[in-house]
């Protein structure tokens, strides 16, 4: 028996292709209450997947349901969902409060003015609510868009790259707000291409790479998987050959190669151990380390490793 809550959103064998380009390929997962982070490099298919999860785009095959109902062409369901897309365009001629009020009215929110007050207060925008949207900074626009997404008190929140344009103070506020909303039992899905961002926010992660679900689960499990990947590390020192001899004896090192320019290229499957052992070796051999840098630490290469795995 498991005491995991029932899935709120179910994505079942969903694919989406545009002509010969496959944007999302046979992806299945369940989303339960709490915060789920959809993580992947730019162009991985996160936005396409989110658009299908909200009914904005059709699936080429497979189904997406929320609360057991199809999300596509199901306007009554949208009363229970709040969606903030990645596009930041707003009705610039409207004042912030007008925009949130209109969104509340479209969603038949009872006691509208109080709901608008509450939503604007949640995003800490009360002071700027009477200014036109086109006078807002990018971060302010995002916050007012979030208020419009929250005005009808939705049970599901889908947020595509919500921290774009937010300054550090706004990020802290946003994270606190999302944790509060999740603690109230809401189901929150957010996407990001920044691992640390999702790590700090989400209880569960879904890694999307090249339109496929590369990994899913708690962030610790995914972090552990990432830490086991082979890394190439470039080491500059004043005695590369002596350092290479010492390094090959380490269990964390798989291979060492000396470049013509004197740099060592170290292949390691346990980069955490290498980080500890390398300075010790250098100190023991009186070798001066000039520079240590990972060669393939881009998000794409990290995700690519998980897909190949």
């Amino acid at each position: 028996m498991t005491d995991a809550p029932e899935p709120v959103i179910r994505v079942d064998r969903v694919s989406r292709w545009f002509g010969s380009v496959v944007a999302v390929s046979d992806v299945s997962f369940d989303i339960r209450p709490g915060i789920t982070g959809l993580l992947g490099p730019n162009g991985a298919g996160k936005t396409t997947l989110l658009r299908m999860m909200t009914g904005l785009a059709a699936t080429s095959s497979g189904t997406v349901t929320a609360f057991g109902e199809a999300v596509r062409n199901n306007p009554p369901l949208y009363r229970r969902m709040g969606v903030m897309s990645e596009h930041e365009t707003v009705y610039g001629f409207m004042k912030g409060r007008e925009f949130v009020t209109m969104m509340g009215r479209l969603r038949n929110v009872p006691d509208l003015q109080n709901a608008v007050d509450r939503a604007i207060a949640l995003v800490d925008m009360a002071d700027a609510q009477h200014r036109p949207l086109d006078t807002y900074s990018r971060g302010m626009r995002q916050r007012m868009r979030l208020a419009a997404t929250l005005v009808h008190d939705p049970e599901i929140l889908v947020l595509d790259e919500p921290l774009n344009g937010a300054d550090p103070r706004q990020r802290v506020h946003f994270k606190h707000l999302l944790h509060t909303l999740a603690a109230e039992g809401r189901t929150i899905v957010l996407s990001s291409h920044i691992l640390e961002e999702v790590e700090q926010l989400a209880d569960t992660m879904l890694l999307i790479v090249n339109g496929k679900l590369a990994a899913s689960g708690g962030y610790r499990a995914i972090r552990a998987a990432l830490n086991q990947r082979p890394y190439h590390v470039r080491v500059m020192s004043d005695a590369p050959r002596r350092l290479a001899s010492a390094l090959v004896g380490l269990p964390s090192v798989d291979a060492v190669h000396v470049d013509p320019d004197g740099a060592l290229i170290v292949l390691s499957r346990n980069v955490l151990d290498l980080q500890v052992e390398l300075p010790k070796l250098a100190q023991a051999g009186s070798i001066r380390l000039h520079r240590v840098e990972p060669l393939d630490d881009s998000l794409e290469s990290v995700f690519g490793y998980l897909v190949e795995k």
Partner: peptide
């Protein structure tokens, strides 16, 4: 063009 149509189509109102 401005990608604001989703504000309307994601409302719980008939098309």
């Amino acid at each position: 063009e401005d990608r604001t149509l989703a504000n309307l189509t994601l409302s719980p109102v008939p098309r």
